[in-house]
Simulated assay, not measured.
Amino acid sequence: MNRPLLFIQGGGSAEDYEADKKLVESLQSTLSGAYEVHYPSLPNESAPDLGRIRQIGDAISRIDGELILVGHSLGASMLLKYVSENEIRKKITGIFLLATPFWSGDEAWKEGFKLKENFADQLPGDVPVFLYHCRDDQEVPLAHLTRYREKLPRATFRELASGGHQLNNDLTMVAKDILSLAGSAYF
């Protein structure tokens, strides 16, 4: 039986979903069928968090057993917010965050995205957290990764020389890290 993996898209438009589908396909291909990848479409709703917290909770509740969580961009930041602010009764075996914005500032529209000051203390202590970011990301500057390094000292950080915001649509490195958690010998 394949292990479940939930991938949360960045943005909320149909174009964002299609763009991230290439990331999902790369992950599925590299994982060689070891995981069943769940990739729900999460449209923007008229809520301060665009409906993501409820949508992520719904997606997690539909998956049986322990799972891997992966998010890209807005999806990564909202996944981190969800895990740090909600009780999850399923075993999470790893959290993988790609090109993750660190929301700050006083603009009202950011309030639904911002993490609580103590978010790192609220994450499950036994769950490995990985963050990936390309130095040439034009949408989420590398400075966001620096903020996460300050807040999440126990996390693993993968800073890539190039790949832009979409990591060249190549998640081979992420797949290798996922497989390493399970002790898989696919590579």
Rank of each mutant, 00 (worst) to 15 (best):
residue 72 H to Q: 07
residue 110 K to P: 04
residue 37 V to T: 12
residue 118 N to T: 15
residue 27 L to I: 06
residue 51 G to V: 06
residue 48 P to L: 13
residue 68 I to D: 00
residue 104 S to D: 14
residue 96 F to I: 01
residue 112 G to S: 08
residue 84 S to G: 03
residue 129 V to G: 08
residue 142 L to M: 14
residue 35 Y to H: 12
residue 133 H to A: 04
residue 95 I to T: 01
residue 61 S to D: 14
residue 137 D to S: 11
residue 70 V to H: 01
residue 84 S to V: 00
residue 60 I to A: 09
residue 33 G to M: 10
residue 137 D to G: 09
residue 73 S to Y: 08
residue 129 V to A: 10
residue 43 P to C: 13
residue 61 S to R: 14
residue 141 P to K: 15
residue 138 Q to A: 13
residue 135 R to P: 04
residue 107 E to P: 02
residue 135 R to L: 15
residue 57 G to M: 03
residue 97 L to T: 00
residue 38 H to V: 10
residue 38 H to K: 11
residue 114 K to W: 03
residue 55 Q to W: 04
residue 139 E to V: 07
residue 116 K to T: 13
residue 49 D to M: 14
residue 95 I to K: 00
residue 123 L to G: 02
residue 136 D to K: 15
residue 78 M to G: 03
residue 38 H to E: 12
residue 101 P to L: 05
residue 54 R to E: 08
residue 74 L to Y: 13
residue 28 Q to H: 08
residue 59 A to M: 02
residue 126 D to L: 09
residue 122 Q to G: 09
residue 53 I to H: 12
residue 108 A to L: 13
residue 56 I to T: 03
residue 61 S to C: 12
residue 42 L to H: 10
residue 80 L to Q: 02
residue 25 E to F: 07
residue 100 T to V: 02
residue 46 S to W: 15
residue 123 L to Q: 02
residue 66 E to Y: 06
residue 135 R to T: 10
residue 83 V to R: 03
residue 136 D to A: 12
residue 37 V to F: 11
residue 126 D to E: 12
residue 85 E to H: 05
residue 41 S to Y: 05
residue 101 P to Q: 06
residue 99 A to D: 03
residue 106 D to P: 01
residue 26 S to K: 01
residue 62 R to E: 09
residue 76 A to D: 04
residue 83 V to S: 01
residue 53 I to G: 04
residue 63 I to K: 09
residue 52 R to I: 12
residue 109 W to C: 07
residue 41 S to V: 14
residue 29 S to P: 02
residue 130 F to T: 06
residue 122 Q to V: 06
residue 115 L to K: 01
residue 25 E to M: 09
residue 37 V to M: 11
residue 50 L to W: 15
residue 54 R to W: 08
residue 131 L to G: 05
residue 74 L to D: 14
residue 142 L to V: 13
residue 62 R to Y: 11
residue 132 Y to P: 04
residue 131 L to C: 08
residue 66 E to R: 07
residue 95 I to A: 03
residue 140 V to P: 00
residue 100 T to H: 01
residue 95 I to D: 01
residue 135 R to D: 07
residue 40 P to D: 11
residue 104 S to N: 12
residue 129 V to P: 07
residue 117 E to R: 14
residue 125 G to S: 11
residue 114 K to G: 02
residue 49 D to S: 12
residue 44 N to C: 15
residue 80 L to E: 00
residue 41 S to F: 08
residue 99 A to L: 06
residue 28 Q to P: 05
residue 36 E to S: 13
residue 75 G to R: 05
residue 31 L to W: 01
residue 59 A to D: 01
residue 37 V to E: 10
residue 74 L to R: 09
residue 57 G to P: 03
residue 111 E to A: 13
residue 117 E to H: 14
residue 131 L to A: 07
residue 52 R to K: 15
residue 28 Q to D: 12
residue 65 G to W: 13
residue 117 E to A: 09
residue 49 D to R: 15
residue 60 I to Y: 10
residue 137 D to M: 14
